[in-house]
Structure formats: C-alpha cells, structure tokens
C-alpha cells in the first residue's frame, strides 16, 4: 500500500484508543449486568384482580412522595403524567368529575415540564375529549402528531373527532388516511372512510374500504392495534362493512355472487337479532328468491 505514514501517528492512535479503553473500564468495570430480584409482593394465588394493566396497581401516596422529592423536570413530568392517568382511570371507574379535573391538571403540568413528549399531549387530548372540550382535544392531538409524526393514534382520534364531533368528513378523511398510511392494520378507520365515500356516492372507494375493514377483522389483525375500542366495536365495524358491501353489490354495482357472499359473511358476524331480520328482509327485497341461511 502506498500509504504515507507519519511515525507519531503509529503511536498516537493505538495509544489514544488504549487510554480511552482504560478510562471506560475504570469507569464501568465493576458494573454488573445482572442484579438481585426486587422484594416480592405478597399475593394470594388466583387473585385475578392483582394484575391490572397500566395504572391498575398505582400507588398514589408513593407517587406523590416521589414527586415531592424529584427535581429533574423530565422525571417530574413522568410522575405527574402517571398520577394524572391514575386519576383518569379512577374517573372512568367512579365517574366523579373531580378526578377528571385532577387528571387534566396533572397531565397539563406534565406537558409544561416536558413539552417534547408526545404521549403527554395524547393523554391530555383524551382527557379533554372526556370533558367534551373537543377544540382543546383536537389541538392536543395535533401537537402530539407534530411532535411525533408517526403517532397514528393521534391521527386516528383526530379523524374520529372530525367525523363525529366536528361533522367534517373531509377533514376526517384526511386524518384517517394519514393514520392508515402509518399503520395499515388500524381497525375502524377503513369503515369510516367507506362511510365518507358512500356519502359522496363514490361506490368504488366505499367498496374498497369496507372490504379492507372486513379483511382486517377476518384476519384477526384488528387485535394488533392498540386502538381504544372494545371487541364489540371492532366486530360491529366489520359486521356493518359486510352488510354495506352486500347492499352495494345488490344495487349500486350489481354483482349477485359477491352480494350473496358478503351477505353470508354479514350473517355470520351479526349479533343483533333485530338488525339481522331487517337486513334479511331488505336483502330478499333486492334479491327475490335468494336463499338466506337460517340464523
């Protein structure tokens, strides 16, 4: 190699690397990756209420003590948010408005202490939504999305707010599309996009989104997303998607085979007996003589 070597560099770099290594070993040499387990809690066997996801086992007194002794703003924000969410959970159990006010106050303080954490804005938005202060909720979700552009849950919730509260389907559409561009397996968003498309008589887009919603549910993929929706809501979105597809293929873009197939899928999903009967009547009206499976 025609590499021009400078003699002092032959010594310099190995030396500096060795010195650096010695410093690091001296600083961290006695660090152990392993630890001793923390003292265990006394728990009765089969105490199914012991484990509560998230803040179920939150110790408010301990958290308040930790907060009083904490000076680091980021750490304070974390504790403030934890207390706020515990208050929010308590509100949802007991429905006492003072818990909701406390939750808002704590999470707002967390936001002030650490304005760069998207989760704090997100939780503040959830609290504002619960208080029906939709304008503030929207602002908080937007802030969460601005801080973390991949926060699909913020876009999802902005879509829901725009659709249900602000009655602005165009705005809702853009938010749902944004959410789905980040996580294609988000449930409900496709259903609402289809509803928006149906409202505009864009049947092909409606069919596409209903189909995706149904496909997601059928594949059990909706379960993956951490959307704050229970299984019943997810199933309802899929059920109604199947029904709308059956009706779409019965009237707007007729295709008897697809209509029958989707109506069969709908009947498998439907749990509401009244709606089921109404749908069967409507379907038979559109397809006289169509064989409908027994409930």
């Amino acid at each position: 190699m025609k590499m021009r070597l400078v003699s002092r560099d032959i010594a310099f770099y190995p030396l500096i690397f060795v010195i650096w290594t010695i410093i690091i070993v001296a600083m961290h040499g006695n660090h152990s990756y392993f630890g001793m387990p923390l003292p265990a809690m006394e728990v009765r066997q089969n105490d199914s209420d012991y484990y509560r996801p998230a803040s179920g086992g939150f110790n408010m007194v301990q958290a308040q003590k930790a907060l009083a002794g904490e000076r680091n703003p980021k750490e304070r924000a974390r504790i403030l948010e934890a207390i706020g969410i515990a208050c929010f959970d308590k509100y949802r159990t007991e429905r006492a408005p003072q818990y909701l006010d406390s939750a808002q106050r704590y999470v707002q303080e967390a936001v002030t202490s650490a304005p760069d954490v998207p989760g704090y804005y997100y939780n503040l938005a959830r609290i504002c939504t619960e208080k029906k202060d939709f304008a503030s909720a929207k602002a908080c979700y937007e802030k969460a999305a601005a801080v973390d552009p991949k926060n699909y849950m913020s876009y999802h919730n902005l879509g829901l707010l725009s659709y249900y509260e602000f009655k602005n389907p165009d705005m809702a559409k853009s938010y749902f599309e944004k959410a789905l561009s980040i996580d294609t397996a988000l449930p409900i968003d496709n259903y609402l996009l289809a509803e928006i498309a149906l409202g505009k008589k864009d049947y092909s887009a409606a069919a596409l989104h209903y189909g995706r919603e149904l496909q997601l549910y059928a594949a059990g993929l909706s379960a993956r997303a951490t959307v704050m929706a229970d299984q019943a809501s997810l199933r309802l979105a899929a059920t109604l998607s199947a029904l709308e597809l059956a009706m779409l293929y019965s009237s707007a873009t007729p295709n008897e085979q697809l209509a029958n197939s989707y109506f069969g899928a709908y009947l498998k999903l439907e749990t509401d007996q009244q709606r089921r009967q109404n749908s069967i009547n409507e379907f038979q009206k559109r397809h006289p003589g169509a064989g409908v499976p027994a409930p």
């Binding site: 265990a40 809690m41 728990v43 086992g57």
Partner: peptide, 13 residues
C-alpha cells in the same frame, strides 16, 4: 398458572 413471583408499581408477575 401459579403465581411464583409478583411485583407492584406496575404489577408484574
């Protein structure tokens, strides 16, 4: 399932 070891804040088992 039998609880062998449990911790609190947050509950972990």
């Amino acid at each position: 399932f039998k609880i062998a070891y449990a911790l609190n804040n947050p509950p972990t088992v």
